Simulated scan of single mutants.
Amino acid sequence: MSLQRTLEPESMDTMEEAILYVEMNHAEVNRLFAEDLFAGGPVGPRVIDLGCGPALIAIEIASRDGELQVMGIDSAVEMLDMGKRQVDMAGLLGQVFLQHADLKQMGDFEDGMADTVVCNSVLHHLPQPRVGLETALRLVKPGGRVFIRDLYRPETEQEVERLVELHGTGEPEAARQLLRQSLHASLTLGEAKALAESAGISPDAIQMTSDRHWTLDWKEGS
């Protein structure tokens, strides 16, 4: 029997959780996210990063193009506080701007305000992932681009543990448990494709892009 989806907390609300997240080794994953984003087509100049956490992806994106303006949005105040320090240390205060908001309640944000909307490993935190996808689709301008990457849920507990062992090597047990919980909370590839199709996006826009990630790369109007 395939694993059923088990939800995890939507956000990391304490400074201890924010520190744990920042100290985890995300460098390679973040680098590949940015590389694949830029390799897939034009980016920006106005970029929104939904669920930006400590702004590591926003920094990775902005550092590759000095013309970009990146707005990072997150509901966790402690994560944003950590992110502001990261942006300052990266020397990108003029490019990366962080704002507190819940992506499930962004009615005050204008439709079509971004050329590109990105989202990394956030949908699996949401009880209803479609809400996150719909927010991204609303915020992107006509002809703009949505780039979403998230974890996928394996079929078996054994595969979950294999991925935790493979990608959690050298990490503290708390970090390994976060990965384990995230894999359990994620969508299968089939569920992700069905989610895209329900929003009017071809399921072909979603592909497996690593042993634990699927990616949606879609241009509005395509």
Rank of each mutant, 00 (worst) to 15 (best):
L50M: 12
L37F: 10
A27Y: 04
N30F: 12
G44D: 09
N30C: 12
F38Q: 08
E60I: 00
V43Y: 05
P54V: 04
R46G: 01
A27N: 14
G40E: 07
P42S: 14
L32F: 13
S63I: 09
D49G: 04
V29L: 15
D49H: 03
G66T: 10
P54A: 15
L50C: 02
V43P: 03
I73S: 01
F38I: 06
E60T: 05
G51F: 09
G51N: 06
P42Q: 12
F38L: 11
L68K: 07
P42F: 02
E23Q: 15
I61N: 03
C52A: 12
A55C: 03
L68V: 07
L68N: 03
Y21V: 13
D49Q: 04
V22C: 11
D49T: 07
E28F: 13
L56H: 03
G51A: 07
L37G: 07
V70M: 05
D65P: 06
Y21I: 12
I59G: 06
I73R: 05
P42D: 13
F38S: 05
A58T: 03
P42V: 03
E60P: 00
L50T: 08
L68G: 09
Q69H: 12
G44I: 06
V70F: 08
A62F: 06
D49E: 12
H26V: 09
F38H: 07
G40L: 08
D36H: 14
A62L: 08
D65E: 09
F33N: 10
Q69S: 14
N25I: 03
G72W: 09
H26T: 09
M71H: 11
R64F: 02
P54Q: 01
P45W: 08
E60A: 15
L68D: 06
A39N: 14
N30S: 11
D65F: 04
L56E: 11
